[in-house]
Amino acid sequence: MEDDSHLIERKTSGEEIFKGHFLHAFRDQVLLPSGRPATREYVVHPGAVMVIPLLDDGSGEVKLVLERQYRYPVARVMIEFPAGKLDAGESVQRCAQRELLEETGYTARAWARAGVMHPVISYSTEFIDIWFARDLQLGERKLDDGEFLDVVTASPAEFLQWCQQGLVTDAKTLAGALWVQNVLRGDWPLEWTTPVSA
């Protein structure tokens, strides 16, 4: 293992600067590896999941289940994979199951954890656990109060074309495109499991 001590910043003091319903922001004073002081402002995030649902439409071709949702900070309707933040004490797999059902109406008989990503490492502790879901069964959506979104499907080729054309700009969904390509090509195998409770 490499010695990273020449890269590490050390906190000397800190203060809370904002606490909202969802976000919690801090300002810390740190010592750089050179010994000089610096300020770091960052947001503490509870973590989240993203689900890449694989739908067999009966023709033998896999479709991807996606969403179209208005995102206020960028004032745009975005194309995204289903995702959501962890509730306190909730496991990442349980969160993935819950978000898939709430937002799309689907439950899945098989699940595979793909990995984790850190979408905004410069100013947030957020991590997003990436899950694949297959053997989908459609039920009734359970959207949160005040949540409005459309569920859409696309072939992997259509989805990748949307990414290439700039129709998909959401970072987690673009990261999902990398996983989709490699998983469907067989380069990144997954370990599928059947959860006890879906």
Results as ranks from 00 to 15, higher is better:
Val49Tyr: 03
Ala108Glu: 00
Met117Gln: 13
Glu90Val: 06
Phe127Trp: 08
Thr169Gly: 03
Gly146Ala: 12
Ser91Gly: 14
Arg76Trp: 02
Ile121Tyr: 08
Glu158Asn: 13
Ile8Phe: 06
Glu41Arg: 04
Lys63Trp: 07
Arg141Gln: 01
Glu15Gly: 11
Ser197Pro: 01
Arg68Cys: 06
Asn182Pro: 05
Gly58Pro: 07
Phe159Lys: 04
Arg185Ser: 15
Ala83Pro: 02
Thr125Asp: 04
Val120Pro: 07
Phe81Ala: 00
Pro37Arg: 05
Asp187Ile: 06
Glu147Val: 15
Ile52Met: 09
Glu41Asn: 03
His24Thr: 07
Gly84Arg: 00
Pro195Leu: 04
Val51His: 00
Ala133Ser: 13
Gly89Asp: 07
Asp144Cys: 10
Pro33Thr: 12
Phe148Pro: 03
Val152Asp: 09
Gly166Thr: 05
Val65Met: 01
Asp170Thr: 00
Asp187Val: 08
Phe81Glu: 01
Gly146Gln: 09
Gly105His: 00
Arg76Tyr: 03
Ile17Thr: 15
Ile79Asp: 00
Ala88Pro: 01
Pro156Cys: 15
Ala48Val: 10
Ser34Thr: 15
Pro119Phe: 05
His45Thr: 08
Asp28Gly: 05
Val168Pro: 00
Ile130Thr: 11
Arg10Tyr: 14
Cys163Val: 09
Asn182Thr: 11
Met117Arg: 13
Ala108Thr: 01
Asp187Thr: 10
Phe18Thr: 10
Ala154Lys: 06
Phe127Glu: 10
Asp87Gly: 05
Trp192Gly: 00
His6Cys: 14
Ala110Gly: 05
Val51Glu: 01
Gly58Met: 11
Arg36Gly: 07
Trp162Glu: 14
Val62Asn: 06
Glu102Ile: 00
Pro33Ala: 11
Val183Trp: 12
Gly47Thr: 06
Thr12Val: 15
Gln165Lys: 04
Gly47Lys: 07
Arg36Ala: 13
Pro119Ala: 07
Ala112Asp: 02
Ala175Asp: 04
Glu80Tyr: 09
Val44Arg: 03
Ser5Cys: 15
Asp150Met: 09
Pro46Arg: 03
Glu191Trp: 11
Glu15Cys: 12
Pro195Val: 04
Phe148Cys: 07
Phe132Val: 11
Pro46His: 04
Asp129Cys: 13
Pro156Phe: 12
Val183Leu: 09
Thr104Phe: 01
Glu158Thr: 15
Trp162Val: 09
Arg141Ala: 00
Val49Gly: 05
Leu64Ile: 10
Arg94Asp: 11
Gln181Phe: 01
Lys142Ile: 11
Arg76Asn: 04
Ser122Ala: 07
Asp28Gln: 07
Val44Leu: 05
Ala75Met: 06
Val151Met: 03
Asp135Ala: 06
Leu86Gln: 06
Met1Arg: 07
Asp150Cys: 11
Leu23Gln: 08
Thr194Tyr: 08
Gln97Ser: 09
Val74Glu: 08
Val49Trp: 02
Gly35Asn: 12
Ala157His: 13
Gly176Ile: 11
Asp56Met: 08
Val180Tyr: 03
Pro33Asn: 12
Pro156Gly: 14
Thr194Glu: 15
Gly60Arg: 13
Asp87Pro: 02
Glu15Ala: 15
Asp135Asn: 08
Ser197Asp: 01
Tyr42Arg: 03
Pro156Tyr: 12
Gly176Glu: 11
Pro73Gln: 10
Gln137Asp: 14
Asp87Cys: 05
Lys85Ala: 01
Gly60Glu: 11
Gln181Leu: 05
Leu31Ala: 05
Glu80Met: 12
Ala25Ser: 10
Glu126Asp: 08
Glu140Gly: 06
Asp144Asn: 14
Gln29Met: 10
Val62Thr: 15
Gly35His: 14
